[in-house]
Design a protein around this nucleic acid. Sequence first.
DNA 1: TAAGATTTACCAACCGGTAAGTAAAACACG
DNA 2: CGTGTTTTACTTACCGGTTGGTAAATCTTA
Lengths: 180, 180
Amino acid sequence: MDTREKILSAAVRAFAEKGFNGVSVDEIAKRAGVKKALIYYYFPSKDELFREVWEKSLDELENHLFSEIEGEGSYMKKIKGFLKAYIDFVTNRKVISEVINKERASVMSEDKWSNLKERYEGFLGRIAQLIDEGKRYNAVYDDIDPLAAANLISGSFGHSEKPGVLEKMISLIMRGILKK
Amino acid sequence: MDTREKILSAAVRAFAEKGFNGVSVDEIAKRAGVKKALIYYYFPSKDELFREVWEKSLDELENHLFSEIEGEGSYMKKIKGFLKAYIDFVTNRKVISEVINKERASVMSEDKWSNLKERYEGFLGRIAQLIDEGKRYNAVYDDIDPLAAANLISGSFGHSEKPGVLEKMISLIMRGILKK
DNA sequence: TAAGATTTACCAACCGGTAAGTAAAACACG
DNA sequence: CGTGTTTTACTTACCGGTTGGTAAATCTTA
């Protein structure tokens, strides 16, 4: 792992724990075992560092969720596989899940993150599209609002503490949207 | 409105917009039209000020949700009324909704807010209890996990931007938990 | 004039960011 | 190959501004 990656890795852990404003550049530097000025050698600002952390995190999540359901199968199976992959990600990639969850409200409301907001809305849109296709293939109740379902799914992020609860939240969502 | 209340009112607005670490005590003072030192006359620290803001916000939310459904009526009606009150609160008390949503992840994970975490878990517990009673009175599917449902409902907080989406999220939850 | 309310002035620590320098690796070329 | 030159990776030391917090002085009003 080269230096740039070490900094990114320390940054995502720090941001996940304490949030963007709760962490100083110097603390990230210490976690990465480098001097603060070196961070400014690789990244133009704290904002840009966070931007890259957030984008990489969302890339990983989106890739994990959509790559596994690319194969054949009914839309019922696709959506179930998607939700299963979702549980798997929240369980096994906790740091990335936490950074997305912790900073989501700020990213979605503060002007300076407007491009990250668009990125996240694109992610929601892809989930909504999956649900919508499920409707056309008779797997999803046809009075379901796809974007509402997408928001509900992605909102389950935060509550991954007590084991088992997330699974039950997802199965509740499944009953709400999937036929039979 | 006395000075203390003016400070609290400015604080909840500031915390809702920028989060705990994104706002300085001096900015809260300026919004309240007082000098910073006066905040320390009424509150021992920024942490304690936030603590009171959070507790008051949760008190208002909990009171709004549970006071309206105290009357008679079936549990089906109670739970529907509860979810309707929820939509009403998120729509009409945006500042309070936002402060709860924006700082929830930090409150639930950082040690220094452990008492606020317990407070929030008590709130979730009350929702779960309502769902559980709904099960015993045949209004809720009996394989529903009450705490999972409570988490799902309270997680819908963040996504109140586009009007109408929240309502559709809630009706999706209703289909997931309520019989018929 | 006593007690509570508010302001002024201040502090040490920390913040994001920068300038200047250094050692070593990579490169250019006779 | 050897040697001068440029580039890369990284450190030290610093800057102006902001932070949460405090002590003491001043104002207000009963």
